[in-house]
């Protein structure tokens, strides 16, 4: 991948390689699940329930740690006490990395918008790629968010990966 980013090849020659890399990346997303609150149960249902079965989309749950993960799913309420830990684990992830913010609490604070202890949205700490609304979102919504993220990864150019606006599901 370093070869691609540094541009050793010319652009036309690079296209099939980029396509292949992106294709490989999008179907081997190791997802670090940061289950915090209610949404964690729906995320768990999406991962281990045979009805939803996230692994058929090429998403592999339960990595040994954030250092092996490509994707982190923040599902639930982030509090001010938890925020430093979220940031710390995010920084441990290797690039390229993606963030899914699942549920209203992680998006904006949700029903705790006026609380004294809740962080009003995880995007105040780390950049978010996909927002999934709902309180909690159904597992299908998480699956859709992952499919949309995979489409973006497929059409991604490694150099300007960060330029896109975040995806909002729904």
């Amino acid at each position: 991948m370093g070869v691609v980013e540094k541009g050793t090849f010319r652009k036309p020659a690079l296209k099939p390689l980029t396509w292949l890399l992106n294709y490989s990346r999008k179907y081997s997303l190791w997802m670090y699940q940061w289950g915090l609150a209610c949404c964690a149960i729906e995320m768990g249902a999406a991962m281990v329930s045979p009805r939803y079965d996230i692994m058929r989309l090429g998403v592999i749950p339960f990595p040994a740690g954030p250092r092996q993960a490509d994707l982190i799913c923040i599902s639930g309420t982030v509090t001010d006490k938890m925020a430093p830990a979220v940031l710390r684990l995010y920084e441990q992830m290797p690039d390229p990395k993606y963030v899914i913010s699942m549920g209203s609490c992680a998006n904006c604070g949700g029903p705790y918008w006026d609380s004294y202890s809740v962080t009003k949205g995880v995007d105040q700490i780390i950049p978010v790629d996909v927002y999934i609304p709902g309180c909690p979102p159904r597992p299908e919504a998480l699956l859709e968010g992952i499919v949309l993220l995979q489409q973006r990864i497929q059409s991604e150019d490694m150099a300007d990966r960060w330029r896109g606006d975040p995806i909002v599901v729904g």
Binding site: L36, A37, G76, T77, T79, K81, M82, A85, Y112, D114, S115, Y116, S117, V118
Partner: peptide, 14 residues
Amino acid sequence: CGYMHRGYEKLTEV
């Protein structure tokens, strides 16, 4: 504990 403290008892007052 307290990583999930959302201040329920204060929020019920408003």
